[in-house]
């Protein structure tokens, strides 16, 4: 299993909807609205490194209201 933390920057104020949309992506375990220079942090748990890329680059980045993502893969 691979765990990754995804920092998500939004470009729209309807944070509730975006958070729900992120959480609805398969492989996303949880998503929170956070204060600071990113707007959400999502925890992703998937089987392979390739799946991390699919969840973040394709699925999360494709959501309306998401401007950018940055992914950190947990080593331990």
């Amino acid at each position: 299993m691979i765990t990754a933390y995804v920092m998500v920057k939004g470009n729209s104020g309807d944070a509730d909807r975006i958070r729900s949309a992120i959480e609805a992506v398969e492989g996303v375990e949880s998503a929170h609205i956070v204060a600071g220079d990113v707007d959400f942090i999502a925890k992703v748990v998937v089987d392979t490194p390739a799946a991390v890329k699919d969840v973040t680059a394709t699925r999360i980045q494709g959501l309306e209201g998401v401007a950018d993502t940055r992914t950190y893969i947990a080593m331990e």
Binding site: G10, N11, G13, A15, I33, A35, D37, D39
Partner: peptide, 14 residues
């Protein structure tokens, strides 16, 4: 704050 969309977020959640 530094970006337009965050105004609504901070008003609501912070």
């Amino acid at each position: 704050i530094d970006e337009e969309h965050r105004e609504e977020i901070y008003r609501k959640y912070a």
